[in-house]
Design a protein around this nucleic acid. Structure first.
Length: 581
RNA sequence: GCACCCAUAGCUCAGCUGGAUAGAGUGUCGCCCUCCGAAGGCGAAGGUCGUAGGUUCGAAUCCUACUGGGUGCGCCA
């Protein structure tokens, strides 16, 4: 139930009537007519720009249209007042009953209150994390993981049919490096002295993998050339790394519907098929690329390569899909992977990349545009860097200094809920400061705590009411006499609750789950505000001694806050706190 | 050199398919704690929305140029 959408329907109906009555010309487009909460509450509960948007096409003055519209709108019993203001805004004040009904609705709908059908069941594929299977996930991956996961949940909540997917880069040279590194650990497990040269992974996390390999194959690979063991060790090591990564994700509460292996594209004709599809559209050719200007490529020499004509779909230069030795570049399997996604018939594709892959956006969009003949939109969301702090001091990450911070380090220290919430307190394309101490601080400036605290307070007051003999099940509360919720401060909170379904749609439309986190902070803030008013104004306290009916209505409001917080936190993948400490 | 992202209060950041007097936290200043949970509360001051143009009834939001910061730019992925 989206009250804003309902009132917009009322406005549109009124506009239709004005057309029928001849006050407005036929054939007007109402698509830009919006009903929004005004920034200034003095302007009322909702405002519509209808008169201003239609003034020009209708050839009338905005205020004239608004006057006619206002006269019709007040006939709806949900709208108490409709008045023209400013350049032609129409401000509406809704009846208290309207807001009280929202509270009742939350209690009957539960956390489904904000669910939307805007997605119309369209199939969306969200690809995220997709870290190389060469080691544990680090902090940067953590942000992408949380963002992608919350985005997927958000879209699901907004009525899309969502698939969460991880692309395993297990086909390139980096897994050979991994295999060699594991081989060294394997030799070490056999008591040999080994040296980790440049181009190998020296991390401790491979020690148990080397051990495990020894237990599996004994000394079969000792002293043998690469051709004897590389393929097998590669497979063994990649599987071990994916186990590690799955554990990391599980610890963070990130779920995947599918892990898609890059390797599965090789030797199966899948890459060739994707390239052929592009060739059939005349987008594959042999050519020589210009060197990038101003970057002084030291060892540049012109080479003829097989190129994808990505410029035909908005890219800046054409991109190579084969190396000079005719093996595939990394881009070729990526094309094939996205071809696979296109062929699976998704209505929308979303890729979540780290910001360091920003240069990759245009070519990937070009590829999907070409492969789907412009039919499948691809949205690529980049997550910016996470800067780590400890007690306000920057915390430098360095593999060599051993201060390399993994996802596990973060989650072990602050827990999955705090990690997830904090990662969503910034827009995806803005840098994020993560202070290990501040995120655990229990104060107003810490949004995680502030939201959880609101939820805990609701539970506290719920218990208290129950002790006072008031029936507080959701069913009882939904049936309560909500007309007793009449104070301005209470209606204000109900208004904020009513914004939730609208916010879900905005967040889903923009693919920006951080909006949910900010909304929850505002909702919590409004709730705490009402709570604090109770200190000065006794009749605003949630528990009214000796007045079960009034208490019940106030508890209903509090509980509605809690329900929306639970729904919002659910999208973010954070467990609501029943109580603190 | 080119492409993409970013620039909003002293600081950290929000800001709705363009909407009214641009918001929050923090910091600063003033007042307040016998009160359902004061790990606080109320209030004030604080802005040329990087700069300069453009689009229109209306621009932080869209377009162009510039300035500053970040990321990336064939045979790594």
């Amino acid at each position: 139930m989206n009250l804003f959408a309902e009132i917009r329907d009322v406005v549109i109906n009124a506009l239709d009537q004005l057309v029928a009555q001849g006050h407005l010309p036929q054939g007007l487009d109402f698509a830009n007519v919006a009903v929004e909460p005004p920034r200034d509450p003095l302007h009322g509960d909702m405002a519509t720009n209808a008169a201003m948007v239609l003034a020009k096409p209708a050839g009338q003055k905005p205020r004239d249209i608004a006057d006619h519209l206002a006269a019709l709108l007040v006939k709806d019993d949900r709208i108490d007042v409709a008045e023209v203001a400013g350049p032609g805004f129409l401000n509406m004040r809704l009846s208290a009953t309207c807001w009280q009904a929202v509270v009742g609705r939350v209690l009957t709908d539960g956390t489904g209150f904000g669910r939307s059908d805007m997605g119309q069941g369209k199939r969306v594929n969200v690809e995220y994390v997709s870290a190389n299977p060469t080691g544990p996930l680090h902090v940067g991956h953590t942000r992408g993981a949380v963002f992608g996961d919350a985005l997927a949940s958000l879209l699901d909540y907004a009525g899309y049919d969502v698939t969460r997917e991880y692309y395993i880069n297990d086909g390139g040279a980096q897994v050979d490096v991994l295999a060699r590194s594991v081989y060294l650990r394997y030799l070490e497990a056999h008591g040999q002295e080994v040296a980790f040269e440049d181009g190998t992974y020296p991390g401790d996390y491979l020690i148990p993998v080397g051990q495990a390999l020894k237990e599996k194959v004994g000394d079969a690979f000792v002293g043998k050339g690469e051709q004897f063991w590389l393929a097998e060790v590669r497979e063994f090591a990649t599987a071990a790394m994916m186990d590690l990564i799955r554990q990391d994700l599980a610890q963070l509460g990130v779920k995947m519907d599918r892990f898609f292996s890059e390797k599965s594209l090789y030797g199966t004709g899948r890459i060739e098929a994707a390239i052929e599809s592009l060739r059939a559209k005349g987008l594959i050719y042999r050519g020589v690329l210009e060197p990038p200007k101003g970057k002084t490529p030291e060892d540049w020499e012109p080479r003829e390569q097989t190129l994808f004509k990505s410029t035909a779909h908005g890219d800046d230069v054409d991109r190579p899909i084969q190396k000079s030795d005719d093996s595939w570049t990394y881009f070729a399997p990526d094309i094939a992977y996205h071809f696979d996604k296109v062929e699976r018939g998704y209505d929308l594709l979303i890729d979540v990349f780290g910001a360091d892959h920003g240069g990759y956006v245009k070519r990937m969009k070009a590829a999907v545009s070409a492969l789907s003949d412009g039919q499948t939109p691809l949205d690529i969301k980049l997550t910016q860097l996470v800067k780590l702090f400890k007690n306000g001091e920057p915390f430098k990450m360095s593999k060599r200094a051993g201060t390399f911070v993994t996802l596990r380090d973060v989650v072990d220290q602050v827990g999955p809920d705090v990690t997830r919430f904090v990662m969503l307190t910034r827009k995806n394309d803005a840098n994020l400061d993560f202070d290990f101490d501040k995120v655990l601080e229990q104060s107003r400036e810490n949004p995680v705590f502030y939201v959880q605290y609101a939820n805990a307070r609701v539970n506290s007051v719920l218990r208290r009411a129950q002790e006072a003999g008031v029936r507080v099940s959701d069913a009882d509360l939904a049936a309560a006499d909500l007309s007793k919720l009449a104070h301005d401060a209470e209606i204000t909170l109900a208004r904020k609750i009513a914004e939730w379904p609208r916010l879900v749609e905005i967040a889903a439309r923009t693919n920006e789950p951080h909006r949910v986190a900010f909304y929850l902070y505002e909702l919590a803030s409004d709730f705490h505000g009402l709570w604090n008013k109770g200190n000065d104004v006794p009749q605003l306290r949630f528990v009214q001694d000796g007045d079960a009916a009034t208490t019940q209505s106030k508890i209903a409001l509090a509980r509605a806050v809690s329900v929306v917080i639970s729904a919002g936190l659910g999208i973010l993948g954070v467990k609501p706190a029943e109580e603190l400490r």
